[in-house]
Write a protein that binds this DNA or RNA. Structure first.
Lengths: 338, 338
DNA sequence: CTCGGCATAGAAAGCGCTTACTATCAGCGT
DNA sequence: ACGCTGATAGTAAGCGCTTTCTATGCCGAG
């Protein structure tokens, strides 16, 4: 149905090689011939057949991006950044949603490999189960040996594979945040962590605990959620009896849930209990009180990762690029005056 | 580098045809042979070459989704729904971000066509400029004649092309919302519309104006934003002198901006001015006051579109599937008691 | 026994493109 | 004049897979 190179060649009275050269512009073609080919191209509404080109040239024009959940701003911001860079390199970015399922993650990675993508960016935290990490590692080395670039964005490289990583300072950011809460006079601080066994959860929790440690404070009040708003809501309900003056959440979504739960129970934030989040989502400033949180340069990091995966930027030297975290002090953490 | 079918065939001592048959399971292969092939497959870490398969079989395992902005929940929810359906049909969904640019939209559609995707879902409002619509229409008919399914989700079909549409009742929802505001006693109502020349803007504005019409109210206070939070903020600043008791926004993001601006100016919502949005984003309930808005079954509609594009569900009868809008009455619109 | 028919397996022809490699034909120096 | 060089164009060999068509056994029926 669709016109092929051969159709165009026939119409222009040249060989398919010539048409291909006009299309790719990597070989001299005389102006008059080129003009004829262009006319034929237009008249036939020719559209390159990507798969055929990929097969012949052994290289494709797509890169893949693995995210946990596109509808979570944390990920969609990164996806958008990576895609922007891919597009400027004239590549198509495929965004794949794992919905947090490790098996879907593996499935999508192999789908991408099967499509012989140029590169793959893995974003967000990873499950820390050894078998999963090994499975990922195996796929990655397969990819690498097939010439596919792999970049980690916001997650550590699995053991024994050498891939570039864009790392966000989750631990340092969490430490700075909890230090701030402590500075405001809080001594009994609860923590709503992300899902156990997730690399991001682990790093943030570690930062939080180390800040408590510095001041010899109680580290026992930790509950786990799953980074969703609903889980923050539930965690707060569970925490309402606890004797704490502040609740620090592992991310903004959960902090929002915490605030909603407290409000529903008539607990005023920050007068009665202070709340802090992490990520600095766009909506963090719309909540009342505006959320004290930590900003991560997600967009910038994701773009960097996108450039590496697209082959636009080469990685030299150490393969881990650290991105700093920035404390955003707003209104949800109050000074304790008693 | 990577193993090919021929490598596997050699290792298993069979022909490539047999391996292909084992892989696709659409032809009888004896149990012992199949077993041998499977072993060889595993030993060589064989991964199908997608492009080669697509070329030979003239059909790919990819569908494309065009969105304006993945980091906007309105779109990411739809993208996620479509992708979910694609994955259950064992297809890869490519999510493409146009950032609202018509030329990027065209560019992405042709990239998808070039990749010979199975289907394409176009989500969100469209620019209404005739040239753009014509260009889109042309690409769509090319796609259609190449056997690629095209589905519109939340936008009208361009003129003269017959494609299935999943339509959200923007006009009816907007009418219901403004009627509600009127019922609450408001008579001077401002409207912060989306960008001019956008199909969604047009439909929602039309619904709003028709409700005003029914009650003979003033229709003159309309300003345009671009659906972003920032533009809502600016619009509210502009509106602050105006003599209105309610501000209805074209979407929740702008409503959030409006509320932030009013708060900054010391105007209390809803005591001094009522505010309403549209879309019912997840964060609409976290704002104070909780946002009165309209819910669209985005996820459901997007999944439907995904199923059609994947070829799982055939469209029969009328090609436009209407999805209802639902008024969500919350706290940001107050009853006017004077 | 021999033959039609069935279940399997292989041979080989592409799918639409890229890219060596080869051919052609000016214009040039000697 | 003659071979050379350089600029263009064509030829044709795949890229890795699917699939049609063609073998090859093997069965039971005649």
């Amino acid at each position: 149905m669709a016109a092929t190179l051969a159709d165009v060649a026939a119409r222009a009275g040249v060989s398919t090689a010539t048409v291909s050269r006009v299309l790719n512009g990597n070989y001299p073609v005389s102006a008059v011939t080129r003009e004829r080919v262009h006319r034929a191209l237009g008249e036939l509404d020719y559209v390159v057949n990507g798969p055929a080109r990929a097969l012949a040239a052994a290289t494709s024009e797509v890169i893949g991006v693995i995210v946990n959940d596109v509808s979570d701003p944390f990920f969609s911001i990164q996806a958008s950044g990576t895609q922007w860079e891919a597009a400027s390199a004239d590549l198509l970015a495929v965004i794949c949603n794992t919905a947090g399922s490790p098996s879907d993650e593996l499935k999508y990675i192999s789908m991408l490999l099967r499509q012989r993508v140029r590169g793959v960016v893995l974003t967000g935290g990873t499950r820390e189960e050894p078998e999963h990490l090994r499975a990922i590692a195996k796929l990655i080395s397969q990819a690498l040996s097939a010439g596919t670039a792999v970049v980690m964005c916001g997650r550590p490289a699995p053991p024994d594979v050498d891939v570039p990583c864009v790392a966000f300072d989750n631990e340092g950011g969490a430490r700075a945040l909890t230090r701030h809460v402590i500075t405001m006079g809080h001594k009994r601080i609860a923590y709503v962590a992300g899902p156990a066994g997730n690399s991001t959860t682990t790093a943030r929790l570690k930062g939080h605990l180390s800040a408590l440690d510095e001041h010899g404070l109680d580290k026992s009040v930790v509950v786990h959620g799953d980074f969703s708003r609903a889980s923050g809501f539930d965690a707060a309900m569970e925490l309402i009896g606890a004797d704490v003056t502040a609740i620090v959440a592992g991310n903004d979504l959960m902090a929002l849930g915490v605030i909603a739960a407290l409000r529903q129970r008539g607990v005023q934030v920050p007068r009665d209990i202070s709340v802090a989040g992490f990520d600095d989502l766009p909506s963090a400033v719309d909540v009342v009180p505006a959320l004290t949180t930590v900003r991560l340069p997600l967009d910038q990091g994701a773009r960097r990762a996108g450039r590496i995966a697209s082959g636009v930027e080469a990685v030299t030297g150490p393969t881990t690029l650290w991105m700093p975290a920035e404390l955003m002090v707003r209104d949800s953490v109050a000074r304790l005056t008693e």
